[in-house]
C-alpha cells in the first residue's frame, strides 16, 4: 500500500511543479519599465570615482552622469547588453561589478563551485567511511537469550524517536 503513503507527496510535487511553471517566467529584463531597468543596470556598474560603491548607491557627480547616460540609452531602445558593452568601452572592464567569466578573472566564479563540490565529495567520502560495520552474525544462542529476556521483562518497547 505504499502508493497511499506517497500519494500526498506526489500531489504536492505536482502542485509545486505547476506553480513554478506558472511563475518561472518573469518576462525578461526588457519587459520591465525604464526606471526599473536603469536601477538594475546602475546596480551592476561601479562608480569610477567612489569608494566601493555602485553607481546606484552613489550620489557623486560621476555616478549621476553615468545614471543619466544609462537612462538615455535605455530610453533610446538599447538592450542591456549593448549598454554594458558601451560602458566597458568607455570606462574599461573594471567598471562592471560582474567579473568576466574567462581568464584569470574566471577563477572567481569557478573556485567556489570547485570548493563546494570538493566539500560535498569529502562529506560523501566521510559517510562512506563511517558506514556502520557489518552486524555480527546472530546465532541460535543469541536468539534464545533475547527471547528469554523478552518474556521475563514483559513487552517493554521504547516509543522510538524523539518526536510525538
Amino acid at each position: 500500500m505504499s502508493w497511499r503513503r506517497w500519494a500526498p507527496w506526489a500531489l504536492l510535487a505536482v502542485v509545486v511543479a505547476g506553480a513554478l511553471a506558472v511563475g518561472a517566467s518573469d518576462g525578461g529584463a526588457e519587459a520591465r519599465g525604464v526606471d526599473d531597468r536603469v536601477r538594475a543596470l546602475a546596480g551592476e556598474v561601479a562608480c569610477p570615482t567612489c569608494r566601493g560603491q555602485s553607481v546606484l548607491e552613489s550620489d557623486a557627480p560621476t555616478a549621476t552622469a553615468i545614471k543619466a547616460e544609462i537612462r538615455r540609452r535605455v530610453e533610446a531602445g538599447e538592450s542591456d547588453d549593448d549598454i554594458r558593452a558601451y560602458l566597458v568601452t568607455r570606462f574599461g572592464p573594471g567598471v562592471l561589478l560582474t567579473p568576466e567569466s574567462g581568464g584569470l578573472t574566471g577563477l572567481v566564479w569557478v573556485l567556489p563551485v570547485v570548493g563546494l563540490v570538493l566539500g560535498l565529495a569529502g562529506l560523501a567520502w566521510a559517510f562512506q567511511r563511517w558506514r556502520p560495520e557489518e552486524a555480527p552474525p546472530v546465532d541460535a544462542v543469541d536468539r534464545a537469550l533475547v527471547e528469554r529476556a523478552r518474556h521475563r521483562g514483559g513487552e517493554q518497547r521504547s516509543s522510538g524517536g524523539t518526536g510525538p
Binding site: 561601479a46 572592464p93 567598471v95 584569470l104 577563477l107 567556489p112
Partner: peptide, 30 residues
Amino acid sequence: AFAFVVLLGTVFPLLVEALQGDRISVGRPY
C-alpha cells in the same frame, strides 16, 4: 562555501591586481 564566496569576492580584485595589474570589480551581481 558561503563564507568562501564572500571572502573570495572581497579580496579577488586585490589578487588580480597583484598578479596581472588589471583593475577589476566584484560586486552585487556576483
